[in-house]
Computed example of a mutant assay.
Amino acid sequence: MDQEDYGEGQATLGDRLTAAREGAALELGDLADRLGVRVETLEGWEADQAEPRAAFLGRLSGMLGVSLVWLMTGDGEGPQDGDGLRQMLRAELRDLRRTLEEGAQRIDRLERMLGED
């Protein structure tokens, strides 16, 4: 994918969003779940029938590994190559493991407080 194909005037926000989601190897449903929106909402954004609010744009750029400027205008860093995507996924896995470990510790603590094993 040549980033020039996504320059201002050549591609829409929806086009760039679709390219970034596909570049991150995410299905519509997976990204919608991670964002906490309905699949239909995300489909509307990708089809340029609606635009995400500013808060969602920031989250989308982070989740998809693209710069916010690229997502909005087509200028700057677009979809990552395979190595960049792998690094992003590894970082997300580390965060998930940490969250799961913290959750397991909380469960253990609550069970001890209740006297359950």
Rank of each mutant, 00 (worst) to 15 (best):
M1H: 06
D2H: 07
Q3H: 05
Q3V: 03
Q3F: 07
E4M: 08
E4P: 03
E4I: 15
D5N: 06
Y6S: 08
G7P: 08
G14K: 03
G14I: 12
G14W: 01
D15R: 02
D15M: 05
D15V: 11
R16V: 02
R16F: 04
R16S: 00
L17V: 09
T18Q: 13
T18P: 01
E22W: 00
G23N: 04
G23C: 01
L26Y: 01
L26Q: 06
L26A: 00
L26F: 07
L28V: 10
D30V: 11
D30T: 09
D30Q: 15
L31Q: 00
L31S: 07
L31M: 05
R34F: 04
L35A: 08
V37P: 03
V37T: 13
V37H: 09
V37D: 08
R38M: 12
V39H: 15
V39E: 13
E40N: 07
E40K: 09
T41W: 11
T41M: 06
L42P: 02
G44P: 03
W45G: 06
E46S: 01
E46Q: 03
A47G: 15
A47C: 03
Q49V: 15
A50L: 01
A50F: 09
E51D: 05
A54K: 15
A54V: 14
L57H: 11
G58N: 10
L60Y: 02
S61H: 03
L64K: 00
S67W: 06
V69K: 08
V69T: 15
V69H: 14
W70S: 00
M72W: 14
M72G: 10
M72I: 13
T73F: 00
T73S: 06
G74C: 04
G76C: 07
E77L: 11
G78M: 01
P79Q: 05
D81H: 04
G84N: 00
G84M: 02
Q87H: 03
Q87E: 06
R90F: 11
R90C: 12
R90S: 09
L93K: 03
D95N: 00
L96N: 06
L96P: 02
L96D: 05
R98V: 10
R98E: 13
R98D: 13
T99P: 12
L100V: 12
A104T: 12
A104Q: 07
Q105S: 03
Q105K: 10
D108W: 08
D108Y: 04
D108H: 15
R109Q: 12
L110Q: 10
E111Y: 09
R112P: 04
R112Q: 14
L114K: 15
E116W: 09
